[in-house]
């Protein structure tokens, strides 16, 4: 996949994280800890503007104000992410995020998000019943991820835990381009969630979805076949190590550009794999990989 590091190097990423009501001290602490860790991880990026609401401060008013603030600040080239952690409910009509004081519904959130100009948007709703928010929040150029497939999955999900883990675990960067994209984080968190229920021999009470085509249902396993995941693959969530530095070093731009071209060629070749003789595919791929390795070597020098 294409990292778009060059283009993004001049843009700002805006992130609003909300840790809602826990109900019990244990959940309260867990939600706040997740939000704090997300903030810590994102603030290592100088281009990130991060707002975190948790505990008593995570009110509906504060959330509305935060989103309005992003609406005022964000430009077209920027990216925006909203991460919701906590308990969600669904009464067959409205999805609600439980907050101190009045709750906020998905229907109320949607217009606030629509007023944000950022052309790349991501909503990660990790709450129970979050699946009920998907249809209301989806829109072209926005990736929506929910921890549950519907409003009927009401048990506290573990997805949030693994979403946070994806943001700090280099293993989540499956293509090793030193950027964890929304798609990589989704796949990581989903796989870990599935594995959690399997190894615990428990019936899974959550099934995460990703929707980034702006319409239709979310997909459990985004892929070119179901038309999901392309936008999420281009949403850089966290940049790790050298990529971050590289994005800040203008003298590397030429090499980075070449690298990007090679990566695009590799991506294209992968899509042609099924239609090519295996030997030819391997030979061509090997040549591209070798060239990419040489360019990367030059960048690293």
């Amino acid at each position: 996949m294409t990292p778009l590091l060059v283009a993004l190097s001049l843009a700002t990423s805006h992130v609003v994280t909300v840790a809602g009501l826990g109900g019990e001290p244990d959940y309260e602490q867990r939600f706040a800890a997740h939000a704090a860790e997300i903030e810590k991880l994102l603030k290592t990026d100088a281009d990130a503007k991060v707002i975190t609401l948790s505990g008593a401060g995570a009110t509906k008013t504060a959330l509305v104000n935060a989103l309005q603030q992003v609406g005022r600040d964000a430009k077209l080239d920027d990216s925006f992410a909203l991460i919701l952690i906590g308990h969600g409910t669904f009464d067959n009509t409205d999805y609600k995020l439980n907050l101190p004081g009045p709750d906020i519904t998905a229907a109320e959130l949607a217009p606030l998000l629509d007023r944000i100009a950022a052309s790349k948007q991501l909503v990660v709703n990790t709450t129970s019943a979050s699946g009920a928010s998907l249809m209301l929040l989806q829109r072209p150029n926005r990736t929506v991820i929910t921890a549950t497939k519907s409003g009927m999955e009401k048990n506290a999900p573990v997805f949030a835990r693994y979403w946070v883990e994806a943001m700090r675990d280099p293993a989540a960067d499956s293509d090793k381009n030193e950027t964890v994209t929304a798609l990589e984080a989704y796949r990581y968190a989903d796989q870990k969630t599935v594995s959690y229920y399997e190894t615990q021999k428990r019936l899974a009470t959550e099934h995460a979805l990703l929707e980034d085509a702006g319409s239709g249902d979310g997909a459990r396993a985004p892929s070119p076949e179901n038309g999901k995941g392309q936008l999420a693959a281009r949403f850089p969530l966290v940049r790790l190590g050298a990529a971050q530095k590289a994005s800040l070093s203008p003298e590397k731009q030429v090499l980075l550009k070449k690298k990007e071209e090679l990566e695009i060629s590799i991506d294209k070749l992968k899509y042609q794999k099924a239609a090519m003789p295996a030997e030819e595919y391997r030979r061509t791929m090997q040549a591209l990989l070798l060239e990419l390795a040489r360019v990367q070597g030059a960048i690293d020098k």
Binding site: K176, E263, R282, L289, L290, L292, A293, R294, Q296, G297
Partner: peptide, 19 residues
């Protein structure tokens, strides 16, 4: 190594081994 780089073309240690 091919499988590693096919999955992650920019994987530095693998690139190093390839070279």
């Amino acid at each position: 190594l091919f499988a590693a780089l096919e999955a992650a073309p920019g994987y530095r240690p693998a690139q190093k081994m390839l070279l």
